[in-house]
């Protein structure tokens, strides 16, 4: 059972990604910002993949990735950033913070599911 954690302050984005993932048979955990996501990780949620927005209140996506990498069991977990076309520098920052890759909004089902297959072996 592959669990995907979605972190985004946009309820619309969460809703759209969640529906794609749920239909594809993934278990989905959501959080509205980095802090909430960290709390979930601290409570023992262990996703096989994290997909996080970059710009969020409370804790932005890049800080979140950096922190999440330190959370127990998250050392090798694939983490993808949700970015826009223009966020080239953010992607590089995210990579150095420990992100595996990124998705470009808007994220369609093919793109999303394709990337999961690409970064999660056996997903």
């Amino acid at each position: 059972m592959t669990t995907v954690m979605l972190v985004d302050d946009s309820a619309t984005m969460l809703m759209s990604l969640k529906s794609i993932l749920t239909k594809a048979g993934y278990t989905v955990e959501t959080a509205g910002h980095g802090k909430e996501a960290m709390e979930k990780l601290a409570k023992g949620v262990k996703p096989n993949l994290i997909i996080s927005d970059v710009n969020m209140p409370q804790m932005d996506g890049i800080t979140f990735v950096r922190e999440a990498r330190k959370a127990p069991g998250m050392r090798f977990t694939p983490m993808l950033m949700l970015t826009t076309e223009s966020e080239q520098t953010k992607r590089n920052e995210a990579k150095s913070a420990g992100a595996t890759g990124w998705l470009v909004k808007p994220v369609g089902p093919e793109q999303l599911l394709g990337v999961i297959k690409q970064v999660v072996p056996g997903a």
């Binding site: 946009s10 619309t12 984005m13 710009n55 969020m56 949700l82 808007p106």
Partner: peptide, 14 residues
């Protein structure tokens, strides 16, 4: 403000 505009753009693409 940037974040709000940004979120807007992101969601509008859906």
């Amino acid at each position: 403000v940037f974040r709000a505009a940004h979120t807007f753009k992101g969601s509008s693409g859906l």
